[in-house]
């Protein structure tokens, strides 16, 4: 399990990184390496070159904005867990980040890397979709924003071009309480199913992950007070989900995680 040979470049700023991506068409970005390097060790991914952006310190910052937070692409998962600003402004982000892998992985893995990798069972893509984050990407044309809800399009597939780099994520402060729940076989595993539920007074939305090829957000109006009726509503919402041929297992899980995330949003446990 040794990776194939590659050329290695260390970028000192985002513009340079984008230039290298253009120059080496089969290059990949190396940030924390926690998703990419295992694939390379299995030789399932064999980029001809790696563009290492981990030294670009300005991409590692968390800064407050008028509406919430701007996370540099290199912010580590453990920073999301520990950072007081994150914990206060978007507590569900810190909560979700704590469920990513294990400590050693969170110390290296980056927000941008997780979003670019787009594992359907990963937490951060779902958080971004639920909260309506914008993903700031840079390519030869310059910087632009892609709404998270238009970014994840399928299994490990995004609308990020192969010559583009995620530089930041702009996250709004949630207006409503958001509950997070996921089902994992072991602590730190990728989720079998997970959900974030934004629970407003009468309206709200659920974002599922792990059950479909990419996170899916669905809004509702008027949710029942009675748990039994509410489960039927979740059930109806799941009818439009693409369970990728594993419906018997995933649909009941989807209902359960939605209900439990909802209860957490409403202050339960």
């Amino acid at each position: 399990m040794k990776p194939a040979a590659f050329e290695y470049f260390r970028a000192s700023n985002a513009v340079q990184a984008v230039g290298l991506l253009q120059q080496y068409r089969e290059a990949k970005i190396l940030a924390g390496g926690q998703s990419l390097v295992p694939l390379m060790n299995f030789r399932l991914s064999r980029p001809s070159a790696l563009v290492d952006i981990s030294g670009i310190t300005e991409l590692a910052r968390i800064v407050p904005t008028a509406h919430g937070l701007r996370l540099g692409a290199l912010v580590r998962h453990q920073d999301l867990v520990d950072n007081p600003m994150v914990r206060e402004t978007i507590p569900v982000l810190a909560e979700a980040a704590a469920h990513i892998g294990h400590w050693a992985v969170r110390n290296r893995g980056t927000v941008g890397g997780s979003l670019a990798h787009a594992d359907p069972a990963a937490e951060l893509p779902a958080v971004m979709v639920a909260l309506g984050a914008d993903i700031v990407v840079m390519d030869a044309e310059g910087e632009r924003k892609i709404p998270a809800r238009a970014f994840f399009v399928g299994f490990y597939t995004t609308t990020l071009g192969s010559d583009a780099l995620i530089v930041a994520i702009e996250m709004p402060r949630p207006r409503e309480p958001v509950g997070f729940y996921e089902v994992v076989r072991r602590h730190g595993d990728f989720a079998l199913a997970g959900a974030l539920v934004e629970a407003g007074e009468s309206t709200g939305a659920v974002t599922w992950f792990g059950v479909t090829p990419a996170p899916v957000r669905m809004a509702w109006t008027a949710l029942a007070e009675d748990e039994g009726l509410r489960r039927q509503q979740w059930e109806r919402l799941t009818r439009d989900l693409d369970f990728a041929g594993d419906e018997a297992f995933r649909r009941p899980l989807a209902v359960t995680v939605a209900e439990r995330a909802y209860q957490r949003a409403r202050g339960g446990h």
Binding site: V183, R185, L192, A248, F249, P252, L253, T256
Partner: peptide
Amino acid sequence: TPRDIIRWTAQSGF
């Protein structure tokens, strides 16, 4: 597995 348990118990109205 979780799959087994859900299969055994899912019909029972959770």
